[in-house]
Design a protein around this nucleic acid. Structure first.
Lengths: 150, 150
DNA sequence: TTTCTTGCAAAGAGTTTGCAGCTTC
DNA sequence: GAAGCTGCAAACTCTTTGCAAGAAA
């Protein structure tokens, strides 16, 4: 984890920003909750546990900065709240999500399943793809099993 | 177009709602701007041109109702505003979008390109897909041509 | 010192809600 | 006249911004 923080620190420096204690605390929370799709408020509350003096605006500003640097991806699952997802080291595409419409759980799909689809879009629509968002809505394994019981 | 309104009217009636003049005016605006990805505010302003007495809250309530009935899809391209897209008659999947990161234009892709991908997700993650959202971010044909000139 | 960053509070944008009045059946 | 629907205004939620003070180079 240390090395990932160093890497982010380097990215910040390359763009002429500093890794202040507040920014570092925010990054640590993101690393510790990597699969959790935290909202800005969630991040704020978690950072506050360890650094009570931090302000909400700072968290927003840090998350915006990290989004610009593509350290995190800002996603919106349609509930009016932005969530932040760490981009895997070296990943050039944004991973996919499976959202369960019964229990609300969000699973991540790290594989890039869109290779063929992107080729079609690039050639047929003459569109140069830089990134994608793919989210499936449905019923997860656990809820399916529960539903079958009843 | 008349027939599409009748169809929506029927859907409303089946769910015990009425097609009031305000709701009809809203639906007409959506039909007339089918490819435009209007926000609630956009819809409100357009409806207001023909029915100046309508209130913003009514438009919001109508759009919510139409979303619940799956007449429209509520989408969010990450700018904090919900947009509303008419679902094509008989369509069971939500169409894809191409967003140009230079000019902001949004193109629609009506074909469902995810058949194979969905099979993989359904079997490998044991997830019953009910709907999907797929958005590509990149550079459209026109902007690509403009960029090449310079 | 100069520049960047922070915390706070206020402002802003988008959306929802309470309620009285109006329609419709 | 009961139930559903509407317009208005107020409330609410999430996010951004102005600014004075603090930290870093």
């Amino acid at each position: 984890m240390k090395s990932r923080i160093d890497r982010i620190k380097k990215q910040l420096h390359e763009a002429s920003y500093k890794l202040t204690p507040q920014r570092e605390a925010t990054v640590i929370v993101l690393l510790e909750h990597e699969a959790d799709h935290l909202s800005a408020e969630d991040v704020f509350l978690l950072v506050k546990e360890k650094s009570p003096e931090i302000g909400l605006a700072t968290v927003y500003r840090t998350l915006e900065l990290l989004t610009d640097l593509k350290v995190v991806d800002k996603i919106n699952f349609g509930d009016g709240v932005s969530r932040f997802d760490l981009r895997k080291e070296g990943d050039h595409h944004f991973h996919h999500h499976l959202i369960c419409i019964e229990c609300g759980k969000v699973e991540e799909v790290q594989e890039d399943l869109l290779g063929e689809v992107e080729k079609i879009v690039e050639s047929r629509w003459d569109f140069a793809i830089k990134d994608h968002w793919l989210t499936f809505h449905g019923i997860c394994k656990v809820c399916k099993a529960n539903d079958d019981e009843n």
